[in-house]
């Protein structure tokens, strides 16, 4: 039991320290033009990577749940139709849930 507590505390404090480090860079670095350009693109690249991992990672190997993909594709259609954020995520979940219930 104590082993689990140690893991919980070490990992929690470590994760917080990582967040804190990210917002603690000195302004001399942050105000450089090249750093600002990279900073603008950083979330685009990483969040796109995150979307890819959510879609294609099945426990450390490449895999694809077509029902999940179809649901997310339906969400993209909603985006193209200029629907609101809530509509997009509800459509994605509903289509995926429906296909899972049917298959």
């Amino acid at each position: 039991m104590t082993g689990v507590w140690i893991a919980v505390i070490v990992a929690s404090v470590g994760c917080y320290a990582l967040k804190l480090a990210g917002v603690s860079l000195p302004s001399s670095i942050l105000e450089r033009d090249d750093v600002q350009r990279v900073a603008t693109l950083l979330p685009v690249a990483m969040l796109a990577g995150l979307v890819a991992v959510e879609l294609f990672d099945s426990g450390g190997s490449l895999g694809l749940d077509l029902r999940l993909l179809a649901g997310v594709a339906a969400g993209v259609v909603a985006l193209l139709l200029r629907q609101s954020f809530l509509v997009v995520i509800v459509v994605a979940a509903a289509v995926t849930a429906l296909l899972r219930a049917l298959t």
Partner: peptide, 16 residues
């Protein structure tokens, strides 16, 4: 079962 896992990629796509 509720398709909640599809919400994550859909949400980040929408935000991006």
């Amino acid at each position: 079962t509720l398709g909640l896992d599809a919400m994550i990629p859909a949400a980040f796509l929408a935000l991006l």
